[in-house]
Computed example of a mutant assay.
Amino acid sequence: MSENRERTQTEPEPGSGPEAAGSGGGPAALRADCGSCFALCCVVPAFSASVDFAINKNAGQACPNLQQDFRCGIHTRLRDKGFRGCTVYDCFGAGQKVSQLTFGGQDWRQAPRTAQQMFQVFPAMRDLHELLWYLTEALTLRPARSLHAELGAALEETERLTRYNPELLLELDVPAHRSDVNALLLRASELVRAEVRGKKKDRRGADLIGARLKGADLRGANLRGAYLIGADLSGADLRTADVIGADFRDADLRGADLTGAIFLIQSQLDAARGDAGTKLPPALSHPERW
């Protein structure tokens, strides 16, 4: 899954399920720089033959499409070759952090003794970088300014953890840290959504696969971790909806309004279907295939 690509994510809380992000943007360090990574996303995750992957691949096994220079041999044809899942994966910059900082630029092919430890560290680092992404956006949400001190402290602490050496990273209780941060992100979301008048829909974690939501008023809705696979959201109003971790694979977003959607990231859009009429936050862009 090396090279630049579209991505996906999970909601950052225990038991769920994913630089500029959402409505506020984010630092360049949280954008994947595949040229500075040792293709960890092409090796560490397991693949299961499905609509998303053409083959089965064990965790820790290099994808057969991975070249010696750590580039993908079918990067420009991933979807055509049945590797759609590769196009919607995001490491939030964790790949280059592990490759260049945690392991000092020593790649797993030239130093095989580092491979197992590097592969174990990568998922923990990815989780931490995902949290950095959401915390960075939360600090731009003006209705949540009463929480900015706490959010800033959480951001600083999470960044500190990413600078741990491999041994300490593997000892971290990442799920516990993720749970604490998620609780803070939810409080920020509630403050933002409270400004939307009227009763807001709470569909957190809901099974909305294939749901008919064309033109639906979802302003200020809680859609955290909702399964919206194949849902018809064409023309829907998703302004100020919390969509962290929502699964938009193949969802129809044509003509939908997602301006101001909370914790919306590019990979969610890349996994969905939309058109020029889909309204997005300024920091995000329409996927080329739309």
Rank of each mutant, 00 (worst) to 15 (best):
L264S: 12
G260I: 02
G210I: 06
M125G: 01
A49G: 09
K97R: 10
V98I: 06
V44R: 07
L128Y: 02
H286E: 02
E13F: 15
L161R: 12
G205I: 10
L168E: 15
L253E: 02
L131A: 05
S179W: 12
A231M: 09
E137V: 13
R31E: 10
D69E: 06
L151I: 06
S16V: 14
G104H: 00
S23T: 10
A231V: 09
L172A: 13
G25E: 15
N65A: 05
R187P: 07
E157F: 14
P175W: 12
R163N: 08
G235K: 10
A221R: 03
L141G: 04
L238G: 04
P112I: 05
C37G: 04
P27N: 12
K57F: 00
L186V: 15
P14F: 08
G230E: 01
N58S: 14
D232I: 04
D33M: 04
E13T: 14
A21G: 15
V196M: 03
E3A: 01
V44Q: 12
S48R: 14
L151K: 05
G15V: 07
P281S: 06
R193Q: 00
E156P: 14
S99M: 01
Y227Q: 14
V44F: 05
G95E: 05
A59Y: 07
Q67S: 08
I74E: 09
Q110G: 07
R187S: 06
L169S: 02
P18Y: 15
E159K: 13
H75D: 03
A216G: 14
G230A: 00
P282R: 09
R163P: 06
A246Q: 08
D90W: 02
H177Y: 15
A188W: 05
A39P: 04
H148Y: 02
D207E: 10
Q266M: 02
T278G: 02
G215S: 11
T158H: 05
G105K: 06
F103E: 03
D237G: 05
Q268M: 14
L172V: 12
V51E: 13
D242S: 03
D207T: 09
R84V: 06
N182W: 14
K57M: 03
G82S: 09
G210M: 06
L169C: 07
G277H: 01
V98C: 08
S234V: 04
N4A: 05
A144H: 00
A32W: 00
A194Q: 03
R77S: 13
L218T: 09
Q67V: 00
L280M: 01
P64M: 02
F92D: 13
M1K: 03
Q106A: 11
R224V: 15
Y89Q: 09
V51I: 07
G215E: 11
W133T: 12
S99T: 03
D90N: 09
G215P: 11
L30H: 10
R187A: 12
N58M: 14
H75S: 04
I209E: 15
E167C: 07
P123E: 05
A216W: 13
A251D: 00
F83Y: 10
T140N: 10
L139M: 12
A28N: 08
L155D: 11
T136C: 11
A32Q: 01
G260Y: 02
S16Y: 11
L218C: 10
